[in-house]
Amino acid sequence: MKHSHDLDCKDLLSQMNDYIDGDLDETLCSEIEAHIKTCQHCQIIVDTLKKTITLCREEGREVNLPPDARQRLFEKLNLPENDD
């Protein structure tokens, strides 16, 4: 899909990671934003990609070390448990 400006969907895909991570320079960032405004497909890909990352991050960070596993770790390492 090609639009009135220079950037096309394939270019956007190759820059998507850097765009999402905020690693692109201002000019390229504005070009991508202009493209997204007129291309619903790319808008959906960017939105669902961002949401995917957020959901996976939240799910991943739910995991904490269970207290009994922590106790076994300190025993295994022969360390005092109450230090912080």
């Binding site: 770790l73 300190f74 390492l77 022969n78 360390l79 005092p80 448990e81 230090d83 912080d84």
Partner: peptide, 8 residues
């Protein structure tokens, strides 16, 4: 051991 416990 105290420094290591802190690291853990």
């Amino acid at each position: 051991k105290h420094a290591f416990a802190q690291l853990v």
